[in-house]
């Protein structure tokens, strides 16, 4: 009569275990609920803002180009001409000009294969984090990079590379894998830095990576805002 007790106990135990596991997975990803209406609204707000920002950035780029052409066409007399040259040089260094030159193109991607093989493992060990990109960029700078871009975002002095959740932002712009980092500089020096550093580490942990030296790496200009209104340029005496 009590024959069913043993199998039922076992089944209940398993169910209990799974329940606990399920609960844990839910707390890990607390409030991640793709079906939530609130999140859907937020996502559509984000997408609208991004669309609008892309339009604004194109407009900024266009006016900057027109202004540049205008300044070049206005044959300025002597001293002004010199200043114009100086300004062009500053723009080049600041990252406001599209540039071309010898350099390298690095791509890194999430380790999707690895995660597929071990679906129960922590997925954070398989996705590319902002720290990876930040390290690669620092190494490229150490290797003498003269210009760097990440997925088409030109890095300027005030550029930040960070994450919100698992989303990587560069110049407050969302970028998605695969990540393509372009750098202009001595291909030999750049290669030496990254292949003995972060790229090697990523390769060893099975991230799909590629590294290519090229003669003509093209890096776009910075298209964002330059609103500096909190500090003042000191008057020169």
């Amino acid at each position: 009569m009590r024959k069913w007790i043993v199998p039922l106990t076992i089944v209940c135990l398993i169910t209990g275990f799974l329940l606990a596991f399920q609960l844990k997975a839910l707390t890990d990803a607390s409030s991640v609920n793709p079906m939530s209406q609130k999140n859907n609204n937020l996502i559509s707000i984000i997408q609208n803002l991004e669309q609008e920002i892309t339009g604004q950035e194109n407009q900024v780029e266009k006016i900057r180009q027109e202004l540049d052409t205008l300044q070049q066409n206005q044959q300025a007399p002597g001293k002004l001409n010199e200043m114009q040259e100086q300004l062009r040089d500053m723009r080049l260094w600041a990252g406001l000009t599209p540039v071309v030159g010898n350099g390298v193109i690095i791509t890194v991607d999430d380790n999707k294969e690895g995660l597929k093989a071990k679906p129960n493992d922590d997925p954070n060990r398989y996705i590319v984090h902002y720290e990876h990109i930040l390290s690669l960029v620092s190494e490229l700078k150490r290797g003498g990079a003269e210009a760097i871009s990440v997925n088409g975002q030109r890095l300027i002095t005030t550029s930040e590379i960070r994450c919100v959740g698992n989303v990587i932002l560069v110049n407050t712009t969302r970028i998605a894998p695969p990540f393509e980092i372009r750098a202009i500089g001595s291909p030999h020096n750049l290669a030496e830095m990254v292949t003995n550093g972060e790229l090697e580490v990523m390769k060893a942990t099975n991230y799909p990576i590629s590294f290519q030296a090229e003669n003509e790496v093209i890096i776009p200009a910075y298209k964002g805002e330059l609103q500096f209104d909190l500090s003042q340029v000191a008057k020169e005496d």
Binding site: V32, S36, N39, V164
Partner: peptide
């Protein structure tokens, strides 16, 4: 459900992005 897609992000992170 864990990844870098927007639909996988927490509400507070989406708010920070907005």
């Amino acid at each position: 459900l864990i990844g870098s897609d927007l639909s996988m992000q927490r509400t507070e992170n989406l708010i920070a992005m907005v």
